[in-house]
Write a protein that binds this DNA or RNA. Structure first.
Length: 316
DNA sequence: TCGGTATTAGATACCAGCCT
DNA sequence: AGGCTGGTATCTAATACCGA
């Protein structure tokens, strides 16, 4: 040992300092260092032994810009994989889809800078609609990081996506609560020890799948968290005509004020919560007067799309 | 009861992240 | 840059208060 008080990295035993793997292992054990490894795309997650599974598609698009109404897809990548419902882990082979599409207009320079995709790479190409249909039809859930971005783009181009349940790995998981300083995909991957060349559709998908296959604070994986949302209906409840005096009660209960609609509203995760909420509203807000509240049902087939949920009214 | 001022709820405006 | 969401900062109008 040298005379310094603190152990330095160079004191760690390394058989051959020129061997990167040995250096990486030594660094990984040292409290003052963290090792990032190049992310290795998995094409197979091991044997499937007849367990209960759901098919999940992890999707990413590269586009000519941010506005789905005026911009177009230039690259679509999808990974289709089975997920063990008990463990939340991917199993079996990964079906990889990746294709360019010519947007019919020049790709803006700043997009080429972000994605590395230029006009010559997409010239005359078109994504195979039949192949997309076939792959997507099998999926129980489509997941994207910030699905509110990808969903409108792919729905406008491929109607098959409209009927699918969608999950969002950005909004659907409270990364702040999970202890992450940022919910950016590259950051989430690097926290788990991986780096990669971000902003190309396929490797972004691989990164997202690996992030979602890692355990969250409660032990379940991101995949199981998002699968749990399939088939669940959320409700946006608008307490229309609530008396002014009840504003404090509503606020205290977590209602939020919609200035444009001039109404207090809250979001509810299930039918059971909805029933309970209507009772509370009747007892605490509307009194004995009968009142009608407005409901918007948002299931995973509507969430993150540009369509609104199913509207209805309910007497409380 | 009036003028002036401090306090506040409510509404609006802004900003920070995400995606390309 | 567009759209969405969630958080915060700022502005405003109503209210409360006080002294004269």
């Amino acid at each position: 040992m040298k005379k310094t008080d603190q152990m330095s990295f160079f004191d760690a035993p390394v058989d051959s300092p020129s061997d990167p793997e040995a250096m990486a292992q030594a660094l990984a054990q040292h409290p003052d260092f963290r090792v990032l490894r190049r992310l290795v795309p998995h094409s197979d997650y091991g044997p499937v032994n007849g367990q209960s599974t759901r098919r999940v598609i992890v999707l990413d698009t590269e586009t000519t810009g941010l506005d789905s109404k005026s911009e177009s897809i230039i690259e679509l990548a999808m990974l289709s994989v089975l997920v063990d419902t008990a463990t939340g882990l991917p199993v079996g082979p990964v079906t990889i889809f990746e294709s360019f599409e010519d947007p019919g207009k020049p790709i803006p320079p700043q997009i080429t800078e972000i994605t590395g995709i230029d006009d010559s790479m997409v010239k005359g190409l078109r994504i195979d609609d039949a192949a997309v249909d076939e792959l997507v039809a099998q999926a129980d859930l489509v997941v994207a990081h910030n699905a509110g971005f990808d969903r409108p783009f792919v729905e406008a181009r491929f109607p098959v996506f409209a009927a699918k349940a969608w999950g969002c790995s950005f909004m659907g998981i409270d990364w702040k609560k999970e202890g992450s300083g940022s919910a950016k995909l590259e950051f989430l991957a690097s926290e788990r020890g991986w780096f990669y060349d971000a902003h190309r559709a396929q490797v972004d998908c691989h990164a997202l799948l690996l992030v979602l296959a890692s355990p969250l604070a409660d032990g379940q994986t991101g995949l199981s968290r998002l699968l749990a949302g399939v088939g669940q209906t959320r409700y946006k409840l608008r307490a229309t005509g609530a008396p002014f005096e009840s504003k404090d009660k509503l606020k205290a209960r977590g209602y939020r004020w919609d200035g444009e609609g001039r109404v207090w509203w809250c979001s509810l995760a299930s039918d059971v919560l909805l029933d309970a909420e209507c009772e509370w509203l009747r007892d605490e807000v509307y009194g004995r007067r009968s009142a009608r509240v407005q409901l918007e049902a948002l299931d995973s087939r509507v969430q993150y799309s540009s369509r609104s949920g199913h509207l209805s009214e309910r007497t409380v």
